[in-house]
């Protein structure tokens, strides 16, 4: 067992973990932050995307002990403390960018990283960036629209 310390959503946490404990296990089982999901075991689906030191990271593909000292942000930290959704979260709701919700935390975290890197992406850039995030429900249409809208670009409102 190894002691690991990090800040998660701004809160300092530390725990003893096995060497093989994945960051996603640490978040879900250790901290009870179950918003980060596990949708595959080959680092393909992106349901577990979080930010580690500001970078979009698949939490199923990194050991918790390798995140010692890191600043980790998860979906639970995206809304304001009073519950107000972030612009990206709000855009996902306004544009119906989610259905079953399982891929959604990863999508939102990826979208946030994309807009940090590239504040006004084109449609093609959004689609390419989401290569590592699989959604089975939405056909991506409204996810792409939501991200473009969150970037401040004009997009027709859902179904109107």
């Amino acid at each position: 067992m190894t002691k690991v310390s990090m800040r998660v959503n701004g809160r300092p946490v530390s725990a003893e973990v096995e060497g093989r404990t994945l960051l996603v296990q640490f978040l879900r089982e250790g901290l009870g932050l179950t918003g980060t999901h596990v949708g595959c075991d080959t680092a393909q689906c992106g349901a577990c995307v979080v930010h580690v030191d500001g970078r979009a990271t698949k939490a199923c593909n990194v050991f918790a002990m390798d995140c010692d000292g890191a600043e980790v942000a998860t979906i639970e930290g995206m809304a304001a403390p009073d519950g107000t959704l972030s612009p990206i979260q709000q855009a996902f709701q306004d544009h119906h960018g989610l259905q079953c919700g399982f891929c959604t935390p990863g999508m939102v975290m990826s979208a946030a990283a994309l807009l940090d890197e590239n504040p006004r992406p084109t449609e093609a850039e959004v689609r390419e960036y989401l290569e590592g995030n699989i959604c089975r429900c939405t056909g991506y249409h409204n996810i792409v629209k939501a991200i473009l809208a969150a970037s401040g670009q004009p997009v027709a409102v859902a179904a109107e």
Binding site: L33, T34, T74, I75, M78, G101, P105
Partner: peptide
């Protein structure tokens, strides 16, 4: 959407 967008859904896992 609010619970799914804030990581507070409750799935079986």
């Amino acid at each position: 959407d609010v619970r799914f967008l804030t990581g507070t859904g409750r799935y079986t896992d």
